[in-house]
Each structure stands twice: as C-alpha cells, then as structure tokens.
Amino acid sequence: MPSCYPVSRIRETERQALAAGRQLMPLAGAAAARFVAARIAPGTPVLALAGPGNNGGDALVAATVLRAMGHDVRVLLPAGPQKLPPDAARAYDGWVAAGGGTLSALEPGFVPGLVIDGLFGIGLNRPLGADWQALVDTVNRWGAPVLALDVPSGVDADTGVALGRPIQARWTLSFIARARGLELPGSGAGAIGERHLDTLDVVMPSEADDV
C-alpha cells in the first residue's frame, strides 16, 4: 500500500515543488484526462465539475486535454470564474481559448457517461453547503461513473469522515501522494472507490506518516 500523508504534508511538498518551478496543474489535469480517455468510448459525454479552487483547475485542464483528444466534454463551474486562484484562472482561460464554454447549472435532461469531480479535493474541511450538496445528490442519482480528483467531494481528506453526503466515486485519483483519510475507516470510506495515484514525479519526504 502506498504511504499516506496528512494534508499539511502534501501541501508543503506541493508548495516546494511549485517554488522549484514545477507546473503541477497541467500535469495533474493531463493525468486525469489520460485516465478518463482510457475508460470511455468515443462520443461518450463527459461532465467536468470544476469547483472554486485549484481542484477545479485540475478539472478544467483535464477537460481541455480531453476536448483536444476529440471527446465530448462539458464543464460545470457553479461558482463562476471570478474568484478562481491564479493557476486555476489560467486553466479556465485555457479552456475558453480552446473553444470551451461553461455551465453555471446542470442542463435539464442531460446525463453524462462519466463525471470528473473537481469540486473540492483535499481542501474541504466543513460540511457541504446546501447548493453543493444538491449538486452532489443529483450526480449520485445519475449513477454515472465518477472520477474524483484527490478525494471525493464531501470526504475529509485527513480523517475520512463524510462531510454531508459525499459524491460516490468509482475511482479516486490522487496526485503527488495519497491523503491519509483515503485509507482510514471513516464514514466516507464507501465513497472512494478504486484508489489510484499519480505522483507527477514529485517525491514526498522519506519520513512518511503512514496510516
């Protein structure tokens, strides 16, 4: 089993990689796109859920790469682009420059063949707000396969506790390292699905805080 780390350790390693000039969001988004492309047939509609932080940026990059591959991709950006952090804002600009548009709400009657969950990732530490919970509930009712980026939205990445009713992922793709909450027997454990890891060629410190 890969070593698992507290969110603070992952964030510090990420910060150091960024300070050294690594462009992590393009790598993470491309990794997610490859993961999806290997699991869908041509023409399968994909919905990328892009939240208000860098997890949303990863989803936007994935959508851009999938679009370039010829896939049918739509992006839901419920909070809009105005307050995206800098890297995620650049990912949004890249999506728009590639000809992509964004939705602020789900289209009636539309059910995708696969969903990319880039709503919150490891940053969520409080219960889902009412609007976010309603969105997650709708996705769960669809029953479409979900790829969660880093951690399913609605699961605390440090404790594995459900913060409301989490999105039900078929796969969870962690970047750099696996958050320890993915391996703890918390109330969100049933939402995680298959666990996958792409280190993005970033090396975590050797003194691992294993579960």
Rank of each mutant, 00 (worst) to 15 (best):
V73I: 08
T172W: 01
L106C: 07
A37R: 14
D156N: 15
I40R: 14
R195E: 05
D87P: 05
Q82S: 15
A177S: 02
S104N: 08
V151A: 00
A30T: 15
G94F: 12
R22E: 15
W132M: 12
I40G: 05
M204L: 15
V211R: 11
L76K: 00
V7L: 08
G123R: 09
A37Y: 11
L149H: 00
P108R: 04
G123K: 10
I176L: 06
L106Y: 07
P152G: 06
I192E: 00
R22N: 07
L18K: 13
P205S: 11
G70D: 10
L47K: 10
L197S: 02
A148D: 00
Q133H: 03
D87G: 03
A30R: 14
A98V: 13
A91K: 02
A157Y: 05
V203P: 04
A20R: 15
N140M: 04
V75D: 08
I10H: 05
D150V: 00
L66A: 06
T13A: 14
M1Q: 09
L147P: 01
S206V: 15
F120Y: 13
G123C: 10
G190C: 11
G181L: 02
P127G: 11
A148Q: 01
T64W: 00
W171C: 01
A91Y: 05
R126D: 10
F175D: 09
G29T: 08
L66C: 07
P81Q: 11
V211A: 07
R170L: 07
G186L: 12
G193I: 02
V155E: 02
T199D: 12
A79D: 07
S8N: 11
G70Y: 09
M204C: 07
P6G: 09
V161D: 08
A48Y: 04
D201H: 03
G101H: 08
G118R: 01
A33W: 05
A68T: 05
L128T: 06
G143F: 12
V73P: 01
A28D: 12
A130L: 09
Q168T: 15
R11E: 13
N140V: 05
G21S: 12
R11D: 07
G101Y: 02
W132G: 01
G188W: 00
N140D: 09
P166L: 00
I40T: 15
G193V: 03
A130K: 10
M25E: 07
R34S: 06
A189P: 01
G94R: 14
I10G: 04
F175Y: 15
A97G: 06
R165Y: 05
I40L: 13
I116K: 00
V202I: 14
G57H: 10
T64D: 05
P52K: 10
V7Y: 04
P42A: 12
A19D: 15
R170P: 01
P152F: 06
G94K: 13
R11K: 15
L49H: 01
P145T: 06
R165N: 13
A208F: 09
R9H: 15
R90W: 15
P108M: 04
F120N: 04
V202F: 03
V139I: 15
L135W: 06
A20C: 11
A162N: 10
A89E: 12
P52D: 11
Y92S: 06
P42M: 13
P108A: 05
T172C: 06
R126M: 09
G51E: 08
G109E: 14
N140Y: 05
P85R: 13
T138S: 03
G51D: 04
A208C: 14
W132A: 12
H71Q: 03
A28K: 11
W95A: 06
L18A: 13
G188H: 00
